[in-house]
Amino acid sequence: MTTAHTIDLAVRRLLVAAGEAPSALNTQPWRFRVRNENMIEMLADWDRWLRVSDPRGRSLHVSCGAALFNLRVAAQAARRRPAAELLPEPGEASGLLATVRFDAQAPSLADMRELYELIPHRRTNREPFSERLIPASVLSEMRTAASLERARLLFLDRRSAIDLLDYAAIAESELAGNPEYLAELAAWSTGQGVPAHVQGPQAIGDMDPVRDFGRRTGSARFEARPQLAVLTTAGDEPLDWLRAGQALQRVLLVAAKHAVSASFLNQPLDLRDMRRHSDPHHRRGHPQMIMRLGYGPMVPRAPRRPVADLLVEN
């Protein structure tokens, strides 16, 4: 039987890193089964599934993909070469999302060590950002990061960003009329979810580029021209969602390297999922995440689950 007391320090470091990943409403819907020092399985924690806003499980898979990327980075930083098999039991109801095997000692890549060290510094930032534009070189590096995980990162021009902000506001207004959605949001706006101290202030003016969790404190004027990006994948199935999560976390860590902050505006995607609609095929891919990027202040970390809560017994 594997418990938090029986896993060795090296494996514990991998799980701590995985647990630092971003997730929808900070649900952290992942668990891990440690088969031995050379194999870890990642499972969906369906007790933390957002049944109302995520009926397809898309956001759950994206969240778990981000945790999987952190696990891979931590392994490479520790000189272990990870080989991840996604959805090894397709069609099964086991909740097994990935199996990660670790080869013997391998060279520690400098870029992976750098990303590993950035994991605890990445935070979702719902504060106002400055008007400073992200340099083209940084945008290019973030775009490359997404492509390495078989996804695309599309940066919106000013007109497209305004249109998407309007769409997000319309979606949030419609969601606010759904009592089940509001109850789910309220349940994850305290404690282990998104407590008030990480929700950011209420926006002054008509444009609000941050999701409203209902418990935001204070008010502030946000940047006049939010810089938005959309992460897309070629398909829109569980395998694509896991890839999107890995791409998301690689992008966010590269952003953190350049002191670029991020928050999310996924209300249109939630509304789409709740209607059980899927996007028609588009040459630029299926949207999986909507991100607001920029330069913001230091912010506190959202609560994290202890390693003991992440383990599944063998």
Rank of each mutant, 00 (worst) to 15 (best):
E141C: 07
A21P: 02
L228G: 04
V251L: 03
N38C: 13
A187Y: 09
P82R: 03
P306C: 07
R122T: 08
M298L: 11
V100N: 00
A145Y: 03
L175P: 00
G91C: 00
L228Y: 08
F264P: 04
E313G: 06
T27Q: 04
Y116I: 01
A244S: 15
S278A: 14
Q249K: 00
A110E: 11
P88D: 05
D157W: 10
G205A: 00
G200L: 02
R284M: 14
A145D: 05
F129S: 03
A176E: 06
A196C: 10
L239P: 00
R13N: 12
R305S: 06
Q76C: 14
V230F: 09
V100I: 13
Y116F: 14
L109P: 07
L9V: 13
T6G: 08
S137I: 15
V73D: 01
I170K: 04
R56P: 03
P107S: 12
A145I: 04
D270E: 12
T217V: 12
Q246F: 01
S263N: 14
R301E: 13
A10P: 03
I134Q: 09
T233S: 10
A262C: 15
V11P: 00
H277T: 12
I134H: 10
G19D: 01
G200C: 05
P303W: 03
F222N: 00
H61G: 06
Y116E: 14
T233N: 05
W188Q: 04
G218Q: 01
D212Y: 09
L231H: 05
E237A: 15
Q76Y: 01
V62I: 15
N125A: 06
D8A: 09
V52L: 10
V138E: 14
L71I: 05
H282L: 06
R158Q: 14
A74E: 02
E85S: 14
H277F: 13
L60G: 00
A136I: 08
R211Q: 10
D166Y: 04
P179A: 13
S173N: 08
T190V: 15
G218V: 02
L68K: 00
R13F: 02
Q246Y: 06
V138W: 11
R101L: 10
A10H: 09
Q28I: 03
F129E: 05
A229P: 07
L43D: 03
P280L: 12
G193T: 01
A110N: 13
H286R: 11
R305L: 15
L271W: 04
E41K: 01
